[in-house]
């Protein structure tokens, strides 16, 4: 009895002590306030995208109001001072450069990622992966400089003559533009730029495929390569797609590096050696200077809107695709 009353007394003292010195109530209030503030911040950031779209749309409205959308997207005439704004050459320029970049980059990056994830020893991998991460951080102007110094001369002096000799029959390889500045140069620069992105993401995805799955395949007698091709890659497929998408959207929106090597001629490219003029370069080269021409800045912001909407569509689309195929 004595023990118990002593215990109760003690506990009462303790709890009084607590409320006084720790003032739990005000701490809780602070916690709640912080929670609300953080939530507000997160929600503010998450409405940035709609705000961006709204801003671009409002600013591009003058041109959308006076021009038909299909004319804007599919007309090839770009004469701002006469009021014709056809984005088609620029859209094609972006598509050509991005496609060439992906055609070069995807197979090379994936083969490298598979090699690093499946065949190299951990020590070698621990040396190479930081290198690749490091190179992902190289600024795009540096890639541009490299393009000007190395890629363009290489195309002009090595690729073009051999294309003339061996591939001249195909219109895709016509060398009517002798400068070396063009789709292929932009594509190569972009391809190298997205190497580290695709490699880093897909290597990680491939390595997270459980070892037990590989062992299951090995223990029915499948070889390493068969296991990789039939099991590991199938399992890693959604992640690999995500890696490629990431690379694509980086290549698609890249400005400076491309601008420096694609030649910037308003035309629809027909050969990989033709000069092109991607949307990003259009904005970078002209925005802020041509305010005197009516509708010009509305047109350029329209171009920015197209870029943003494409990135948006890609992101949501790839999410939907991934959600659908991620069985297993």
């Amino acid at each position: 009895m004595n023990e118990k009353s002593k215990f109760l007394k003690n506990r009462e003292k303790l709890s009084r002590h607590h409320t006084k010195s720790f003032s739990k109530l005000s701490r809780d209030r602070k916690d709640l306030a912080a929670h609300k503030a953080m939530r507000a911040l997160a929600i503010c950031v998450s409405i940035l995208v709609p705000v961006f779209i709204l801003v671009l749309f409002l600013r591009a409205r003058p041109i959308l109001a006076t021009h038909n959308i299909s004319t804007l997207l599919f007309s090839t005439t770009w004469r701002p001072n006469q009021g014709s704004f056809g984005f088609f050459p620029f859209i094609m320029g972006t598509l050509w450069v991005t496609m060439v970049a992906m055609i070069i980059s995807v197979p090379l990056s994936l083969l490298t990622a598979i090699y690093l994830a499946e065949y190299t020893r951990p020590k070698v991998r621990a040396f190479i992966m930081p290198l690749i991460d490091l190179l992902a951080g190289i600024p795009s102007v540096v890639y541009g400089i490299w393009g000007v110094l190395t890629v363009v001369p290489f195309i002009q002096k090595v690729v073009m003559p051999s294309a003339d000799r061996w591939l001249g029959f195909s219109p895709l390889f016509q060398t009517s533009n002798p400068t070396g500045y063009g789709v292929l140069a932009g594509g190569i620069v972009l391809a190298v730029m997205v190497f580290p992105i695709i490699i880093a993401v897909s290597e990680e995805v491939i390595r997270t495929v459980p070892l037990g799955l590989r062992e299951a395949s090995w223990s029915v007698g499948a070889s390493r390569w068969q296991t990789i091709r039939r099991i590991v890659l199938r399992r890693a497929f959604p992640g690999v797609i995500a890696a490629v998408m990431l690379g694509f959207s980086r290549a698609f929106g890249e400005t400076m590096a491309v601008l420096m090597v694609v030649g910037n001629v308003v035309q629809i490219p027909h050969s990989i050696f033709d000069a092109a003029y991607p949307l990003t370069a259009l904005i970078a080269n002209n925005y802020g200077e041509m305010m005197s021409i009516p509708l010009y800045d509305a047109a350029l912001l329209g171009a920015a809107l197209i870029l943003l909407l494409v990135v948006l569509t890609f992101n949501i689309g790839s999410r939907l695709v991934l959600a659908r195929i991620s069985y297993s």
């Binding site: 459980p210 037990g212 799955l213 062992e215 299951a216 395949s217 090995w218 223990s219 029915v220 007698g221 039939r230 099991i231 199938r234 399992r235 069985y327 297993s328």
Partner: peptide
């Protein structure tokens, strides 16, 4: 060939994808 002749049943089922 060895692993074809000597199969394995793992502790946890790993169905192939």
């Amino acid at each position: 060939e060895l692993r074809t002749r000597v199969g394995l049943l793992a502790p946890k089922p790993y169905p192939l994808p």
